[in-house]
C-alpha cells in the first residue's frame, strides 16, 4: 500500500492550492495546437494542458498531472471519458474531496 503520491480531485478553482503537486481533473478539450490543449474545466474556466496527445475535440478527458500554475497542467496520464459526462457531479465531488471529507482522499 502506498498513499504517498495521491492525485487530488480538483476543479480550476482549487488548482491554486496544489501548484507543483499531483492533481486529477476532468476537462472538455476545445482546441489543440502545438502540443498544448485548451480545455474547459468543470467549473467553466479555461485551462491549458501540456503533454496531451491528439484527443477528440469536445470529449471529456481526465488528466492526471502536475499543476504548473493556476491555469495550466502538465499531463502525465490521461483517459478519454467520452462525450457524455456529468460535470456538475464531478465539480461537487471536487469540493467535497477538498472540504469536509478531505480525510477520505488526502
Amino acid at each position: 500500500m502506498d498513499t504517498s503520491n495521491p492525485a487530488v480531485f480538483v476543479n480550476a478553482q482549487l488548482i491554486p492550492n496544489f501548484i507543483g503537486k499531483r492533481i486529477r481533473t476532468v476537462v472538455q478539450v476545445n482546441q489543440f495546437g502545438g502540443g498544448i490543449a485548451t480545455a474547459k474545466s468543470t467549473d467553466d474556466s479555461q485551462l491549458t494542458i501540456k503533454g496531451l496527445p491528439q484527443v477528440p475535440i469536445m470529449n471529456f478527458i481526465e488528466v492526471i498531472g502536475i499543476a504548473e500554475s493556476s491555469n495550466s497542467i502538465d499531463a502525465e496520464i490521461w483517459t478519454d471519458f467520452g462525450n457524455t459526462f456529468d460535470t456538475n457531479s464531478f465539480n461537487q465531488l471536487c469540493q467535497l474531496a477538498n472540504g469536509e471529507f478531505k480525510g477520505l482522499f488526502l
Binding site: E62, F81, G82, F85, D86, F90, L96, F101, L104
Partner: peptide, 13 residues
C-alpha cells in the same frame, strides 16, 4: 461509463 468514477467516490462519502 466514467460517471461511475465520480459516483463511487460520492458513495464512499
Amino acid at each position: 461509463d466514467f460517471n461511475e468514477v465520480a459516483s463511487h467516490f460520492i458513495d464512499c462519502i
